[in-house]
Simulated scan of single mutants.
Amino acid sequence: MKTQIKASIIALSIITLTACNANNKKQNITDTLIGESMIETTSKIDEPNIKVALLLDTSNSMDGLIDQAKAQLWKIVNELSYAKCEDRSPNLQIAIYEYGNDNLNAEEGYLRQVIAFSEDLDEISKSLFSLTTNGGNEFCGKVITTALNQLDWGTHNNDLKLIFIAGNEPYSQGKVSYKDASKLAHQNDVTVNTIFCGDYNQGISIKWKDGADLTHGNYMAINHNKATVHIASPYDDSILELNEKLNKTYVAYGSAGRKKMEMQAEQDDNARSYNKANAVSRTVSKSSRLYKNSSWDMVDAEKESGFSYDNLKESELPGELKGKSKSEIKSYIESKRRSRKILQEKIANLNHKRRNYIATKNNDSINSLENAMLKALKAQAEKKNYKWE
């Protein structure tokens, strides 16, 4: 039975941080799709990893919460980009589920996986902006259990694995017990953090705090209908101008590459739809180490150890490279790489000034999704010796 205030939930099923003191280094063979060709690449997994799974309630009372997720995505990504594990920088993967929507399969518990763990920030943004709301039933125990069973949380003892679930319906709804879900999380070394959308004490009374306590997680309450506050700075216009130049350093390969480049521009527009400052936050993310496009961009792909110019198909090269020799293609890609590095450094320098400027202003995001996630994330990550720059 629904309460008058229709259910909210996100489950930000977040994070597998491969901990600082993890010493394992292993070879991993991945197939990187470039255009319509598969390029086998070999990479060392010797960096810590942050895995964030967002489980978003898309019932019709959740428009505000979903808006916060869309508007604050790039702020969260940027904050995670400043994380350090000793002298190492963690990688980031994000997955998204939606649930609590009558349009979803009832037999599966009104939930579905929108995107599995991915490093493709444009795909993640596209997935968020594709979500729409409708009435439905929100089952916390079911969505937590599904996330635990479907997602690859890793097996290393030193990994930091977190679930964030947010909503305003009773935490005990549904046939799957949240206590059983908590036991499963505990068995898999996953911490469940709960975010109640509403009054702090009301959330306690309907078991949201209990859900967090059972796995030693954080319980938090937010106003999910509060609009995100974006603070403008004197550096915004310059950063956005650099974004236009940054986009021109990408060299799309094959038909998939062309579609990905179009998606990149589309997600620029989506970020700008909130306001200029949000578009700036996305630009900062695009200039960071977390924005990786080796599946379609030749500049990023060339850095992969398994990349070979011999595997490139003439028919799938962009127009400016058709008919060029291997040495000419290499020279072209290298010039794009140099340009990108210079632009990234300029954006980083301007963003440093921008962050200092924003720090002097009143930041009205204390009661937001972003703040709740990062507060719990940092507190639990620091137990594994993670630090923030």
Rank of each mutant, 00 (worst) to 15 (best):
G306K: 13
D199W: 00
I5Y: 05
D297N: 15
E40F: 08
N105S: 12
I195H: 05
C85S: 14
K2N: 04
A95H: 04
Q113W: 00
I39F: 14
P318E: 08
T32C: 08
Y235E: 14
N134V: 03
K353N: 10
S13A: 14
H224N: 08
I14M: 09
F139H: 14
S89T: 15
R338S: 10
R338P: 00
N101R: 03
L343I: 15
D210R: 06
S365K: 02
A277C: 03
H230F: 11
D269F: 11
D364N: 15
V114A: 09
K378W: 12
Q202H: 07
G136A: 10
I50A: 11
K2H: 05
M62T: 13
V251D: 07
A185D: 05
E266H: 05
S89W: 07
Q113H: 06
E328N: 08
N311E: 12
Q93A: 13
N188H: 06
Q380W: 06
N351S: 12
P170K: 09
Y309W: 05
I94F: 00
W74E: 12
Y274W: 11
N158P: 00
G167E: 11
D46N: 14
L240P: 02
S255V: 13
D310C: 01
V190L: 10
A166I: 08
D63V: 10
G211Q: 13
I34G: 11
K322L: 04
N362W: 03
E169S: 15
L17C: 12
L56V: 06
Q267R: 15
A7Y: 02
L162S: 07
G100V: 03
I14K: 05
I10R: 01
E304M: 15
L80A: 09
L374H: 06
I96A: 04
A106I: 14
N371P: 00
K292N: 09
A212K: 14
G319I: 05
N363L: 11
I347V: 14
T18N: 06
V229E: 09
N134Y: 15
A116Q: 12
Y97N: 09
K303R: 06
R258C: 01
L73V: 11
K70D: 05
K2S: 07
R258Q: 09
S172T: 15
N225L: 04
A265V: 11
S365M: 10
K126G: 00
M220T: 15
T360F: 00
K336W: 02
T283R: 02
K126S: 08
V114L: 06
S238G: 01
S172A: 14
N385T: 03
S125N: 04
D180F: 07
E119M: 02
E79G: 03
D46H: 09
I239V: 12
M62Q: 10
C140Y: 05
S368L: 03
T228D: 06
R338N: 12
G64P: 09
A381G: 13
K142A: 13
S273D: 15
M298A: 07
K326N: 01
K25R: 09
G257A: 02
A69T: 12
I39E: 13
K179T: 15
L151R: 03
D122N: 14
K25F: 01
F196R: 07
A106G: 03
K286I: 01
K6E: 11
S8M: 07
G135R: 15
G319E: 07
Y171L: 12
A71D: 13
N103F: 03
P48N: 10
L148S: 04
V143H: 04
A372Q: 12
T32G: 02
K292L: 08
D310R: 12
Y386G: 02
D210M: 08
R282T: 02
